[in-house]
Design a protein around this nucleic acid. Sequence first.
DNA 1: TTCAGGCATAAGCCCTCCTTATGGGCCGTG
DNA 2: CACGGCCCATAAGGAGGGCTTATGCCTGAA
Lengths: 302, 302
Amino acid sequence: MPELKSRQVSQLPPLQAIRVFEAVARHLSFTKAAAELGMTQAAASYQIKLLEERVGAPLFLRRPRQIVLTEAGQRMAPAVSEAFALLGGAYAAARSGADGVLCVSTLLTFASNWLAQHLGSFQVAHPSLAVRLDTSNRLVDFAREDIDIAIRSGGGNWPGVEVHKLFNADFTPMLSPKLAATIGGVKEPADLLRLPILDPGDIWWRDWFIAAGLPVEELAKRPGSSMGAQAYEANAAIAGQGVAIVTAALFKAELADGRLIQPFDLVGDDGHAYWLVYPQARRNVPKIRAFREWILAEIAGQ
Amino acid sequence: MPELKSRQVSQLPPLQAIRVFEAVARHLSFTKAAAELGMTQAAASYQIKLLEERVGAPLFLRRPRQIVLTEAGQRMAPAVSEAFALLGGAYAAARSGADGVLCVSTLLTFASNWLAQHLGSFQVAHPSLAVRLDTSNRLVDFAREDIDIAIRSGGGNWPGVEVHKLFNADFTPMLSPKLAATIGGVKEPADLLRLPILDPGDIWWRDWFIAAGLPVEELAKRPGSSMGAQAYEANAAIAGQGVAIVTAALFKAELADGRLIQPFDLVGDDGHAYWLVYPQARRNVPKIRAFREWILAEIAGQ
DNA sequence: TTCAGGCATAAGCCCTCCTTATGGGCCGTG
DNA sequence: CACGGCCCATAAGGAGGGCTTATGCCTGAA
């Protein structure tokens, strides 16, 4: 589409030439401007000549020891300088601004039970980085959502993204000590059958029942009601409403202070895990690197 | 100097990519922006990808039927648009501004005796063009002075410039009728010897004396005092102070109304002429073309 | 289900733009 | 007054950026 091109070219200045012009106008020297721009004096001369032909008038007067702006050049220089300052500012803002806010997409339970307790140390380590949490159970698509990094659970084989395993998504029943006491304590898996089971339709219950040698049919009999997130079911369990099956690693605090107890060492594991995920192409972006290094160290150290 | 280059590149955005970004951000469409810029959709996609890598963050979210700006993109877009508006304005101003003022370097006599009487018709024909006269006898150097077009006298063979002959710089004696009357009229060349001669050192006098068969030695006897411009000597002649040797074409008005008379048809001609001169490279600049066409027509028509 | 619209990607080529090399003009200096 | 230095212009040549063409994928509409 040559006609379009020519139209375009005629109404917009050649940008590289303008960049050179700006520098030359500032230094009033081809040589110095070229040095600033990291090119040779000849290149600067070439670009200015190009621009002068485009504008249709000389922009500089070549005097013996120096150059000065022509009338046309004087008209152009201030606005051009201002425009470049704007561009530089916008660019820097986008760069640092992008570095200044980290958007983390995370699963609800991970956010409330792990991030909430650990994020403080990240913010201490990176005071200039603001973290914006985006809680969602969807599998985030980095091309479609404004997300820098995500916590996902699953098999870990997603294309186009870098993944780091945080911990296995194992699962084991948990309940409040008070509820356990109502039946004189939970000693063996079968004791659970005497208690309400939260979200009995969860595949995890089935797996765990099988592993524990309990009859799976019992699950089907129960009223099924899922709350959609481990954190909610754990809260229900803490409130004494039943037994939840959750990932132990996410409830260390509750286990430690006795709000929940884990009656059996037996944990189920379907091979799923919690993963840190981000686009491969962005692995070296500072804020992403910072978050990755922090979370991996934090997980390893706890 | 690779280190300079890399420094530079890291602190200034890639301009072509930014230009594309601006268009894409405006249209929220790669395809439309590419069309506006006169390139293919693939090229736009390529440039945006490049810029996103440079910025370190995606600038657009690719949604099914459209794209939207990311946070980083939103931060960048307004300033970038503004910067381009500035650049466009500056460029246009330089272009049209340059078209709006025509700087003419002219010889003093030509200015006062020809341009002053004719320029009006040029300004009527080109009301948007302001003419700035720069009177000087120096041979103007277009590279060093802010001059668009010049009137010169001389042989007409200057390198690098376009020349058009206006009229021959011939020369012939002129004097006021009153002065002629003091010796009973000037009938033949020898009569001049009885009158004061203005700037007898002028080479033109010598040439004309030879052509007229007068003794050249007479000239050397006279007190030499040059006024440096034909117009001044002509004024002296009009005032009756002596005989001047000037170019007839420049004094048509004075001859017509009788302030001056040209006693002899004999004119000298050393091959010099008055020329219109401008840089070859700028022959198609509108204002230069306009002035050239006007002055040639004016000269031819009078 | 098919079609159309829109973006991404790969391969390849052209042309821009930069470099090196050289020359000219002007200044200061010995 | 000649010489060297500074600065810009110009020519020739080469490398790589950036564009095009071609193709694929995805999604929403008919």
